Computed example of a mutant assay.
Amino acid sequence: MYRHIVVTTEGTDIDHAAIRHAAGLTRALGARLTLLHIVPDAHRELDSGNDLSVNAESIEQGWTREGEHLLAAGVQDANCARLTPLQRPARGRDIPQAILQEAAALGADLLVMATHGRKGLAHLLLGSVADRVVHDATLPVMIVHAGTPLPAGDAP
């Protein structure tokens, strides 16, 4: 079935549920798990036409350090022997595009992501990385909400 599962982390509280769910699937299927964090491209994120006198490189370095902490926390959440933490820079790509390209480069056959599940105006205003990934994906994508039960036998 699935041999290589990729789960994303971006530092939200709901990431924990997706990571634990992906780890449970990994154990049940005997698959490999990659925990993926994409470091946003500060030049792209800050390109608002304003002269903010901000050093994009130092911001990206901070985001990279934060990503390292997120990956370490995700490794603890997953508690999975066949897990590889991986951090990649977006480098000119938006986050959904970077997630899909990295998952393809890794040869993933399932992508697991968390979502807030916003509806209505909040969804229209804030958008959703998960929605964009699902729309553009060429591999199966599992969306996990914070309250999604874990697979049988994988209670924390």
Results as ranks from 00 to 15, higher is better:
Arg44Gln: 14
Ala146Met: 11
Asp136Val: 09
Asn79Ser: 12
Pro85Cys: 10
Ala114Glu: 02
Ala137Leu: 01
Gln61Glu: 15
Ile99Ser: 11
Arg65Thr: 15
Ala42Asp: 00
Pro40His: 06
Leu86Gln: 03
Trp63Tyr: 12
Ala90Phe: 05
Gly92Tyr: 00
Ala146Asn: 12
Arg118Pro: 04
Ala56Trp: 11
Gly147Glu: 13
Val75Thr: 11
Gly67Val: 08
Gln87Val: 05
Met142Glu: 12
Gln87Pro: 08
His145Arg: 11
Leu126Thr: 09
Ser48Ala: 12
Leu139Val: 04
Gly74Cys: 03
Thr84Leu: 05
Arg82Pro: 07
Asp41Met: 04
Gln87Lys: 02
Asn50Cys: 14
Gly74Arg: 01
Glu102Lys: 06
Glu102Trp: 07
Asn55Val: 10
Ala105His: 10
Pro40Tyr: 06
His145Gln: 02
Lys119Asn: 13
Glu66Thr: 12
Ala73Phe: 12
Gly92Arg: 04
Gly117Val: 04
Ala72Asp: 14
Arg44Gly: 07
Arg91Gln: 15
Ala105Cys: 01
Ala81Tyr: 05
Glu102Asp: 08
Leu36Val: 08
His43Leu: 12
Leu100Gly: 05
Pro85Thr: 11
Leu83Arg: 12
Gly117Glu: 07
His145Trp: 01
Ala81Asn: 08
Glu102Ala: 13
Leu139His: 01
Leu125Gly: 02
Thr64Pro: 01
Cys80Lys: 08
Leu124Gly: 15
Leu111Gly: 05
Val39Phe: 07
Arg118His: 05
Asp131Leu: 10
Leu139Gly: 04
Leu125Pro: 01
Ala81Asp: 11
Trp63Met: 14
Glu68Asn: 09
Ala108Phe: 12
Leu121Trp: 06
Arg44Asp: 10
Ala81Ser: 09
Glu66Ala: 12
Asn55Phe: 12
Val54Met: 10
Met142Cys: 09
Leu33Arg: 03
Leu35Ile: 03
Leu35Cys: 00
His145Ile: 00
Ala103Glu: 06
